[in-house]
Design a protein around this nucleic acid. Sequence first.
RNA 1: GCGAGCGUAGCUCAGAUGGUAGAGCGCCAGGUUGUGGUCUUGGAUGUCACGGGUUCGAGUCCCGUCGCUCGCCCCA
Length: 411
Amino acid sequence: MAALQPARGTRDLVGEDCRRHLHVVETARRIAACYGMEEWSTPVFEDTRVFSRSLGDTSDVVMKEMYSFTDRGGDSLTLRPEATAGICRALVSNGLTQSLPQKVFYTGPMFRYERPQKGRYRQFHQIDVEVLGAAEPLADAEVIACGWHVLKALGISGDVTLELNTLGDRDSREAYRAALVEYFTAHREALSADSLSRLERNPLRIVDSKDEGDRRIVAGAPTIAAHLTPAAAEFYDRLRRHLDAFKVPFVENPRIVRGLDYYGHTAFEFVTSRLGAQGTVMGGGRYEGLVEEMGGPPTPGVGWAAGVERLSMLLASAPDPVAPVAVVPVGEAAESPALALLQRLREAGISAEMAYRGNLKRRLERANRIKARAAVILGETEVARGVAQLKDLASGAQAEVPLAEVVARLR
RNA sequence: GCGAGCGUAGCUCAGAUGGUAGAGCGCCAGGUUGUGGUCUUGGAUGUCACGGGUUCGAGUCCCGUCGCUCGCCCCA
């Protein structure tokens, strides 16, 4: 029988991989709670319209990357490609537009039908923070400070730079977009084939091109700064002042853009050079109109998402599993007392293991292999005297301890 | 959708110019029937990704397929 492989773009999280993954998620969860974020959980699949509406008219290309299917009732459902749309839908579904702001932490698997590459999978996992219903730049700064805090707590902030930009308000963006189209049209002979088609579809994206020829042209392209309305410039100023006050370091990068219309004002990415072409480790910004698309009232939002796989790859080391205590019975008469002790240890909150078989030597070898911190050796002579041999497996020191005191000694 | 590289033991990999497959780690057992780590002796393990071709002979060369990896496109 041929061995089956995981489906393309999916992978198992086993051993160290799983510990890294959980460490990222648990760290983010703990820190987000310090910022008043409450965890939500929404379905893994949704009515396809939840996502198609969030994508507006860019649909065509992007829709091809969604895992969509028709269920037996004939409804079109989609495995969520991201968390924000579902969160906005849930805000409306649960009537929470009446109690704003809502500050949300989210984590879970997402799905996109893409060609897998480094740090990029078809089933991947994100951590996500969103603040819904706050129009003030302080919310943006708080969200970014939370992200920075998570990266610091993971010990990877040294490898990561916060890059910040503003997309301005609607008037700013329209003026900027027009200026960009004019500029790139004037240089169209020099643009790459890819960027020529972007000029039609999504001119903002040219600014983000990886093509070297394009980059030379982009260097001379207009930036958003000159096209900001006074209100948009003021919003951006306040954001930067708040970040300074929060002591969050950043560099400005006018090349950070967003493809969809509902993004405005703040756009940011935490980037690293350690992950090849997938350098963005956490990205986010401000948006408007998404909640309306889900049938709610106009409600602004600001948030970020980060790929757990990418963060896991940046961790210097995997956290160790908790070191257990090994209970080692010697001889048949010791087995029941050993089981009783095993259970007492576990109920006292101490991680404890007892091998299913083997003699003393084999069990100690195994205790060593599972990195046990101590062994409790219980032979027939010990049972008869109501004691146990307590052996520290790091030092090798062994002492006789009354059975009744074993749990306290190992706490 | 496009391009490049790679596929040999559980893992990491070695196998010039074609001659019937190896190491380290890990695993199992003994040295040590109530004491692990270190040491030492021995042992098991492979459709050499799959299919075809060239050849007396293919892990090695050729063609195809599949898979993985990295990159392009896309990135909500």
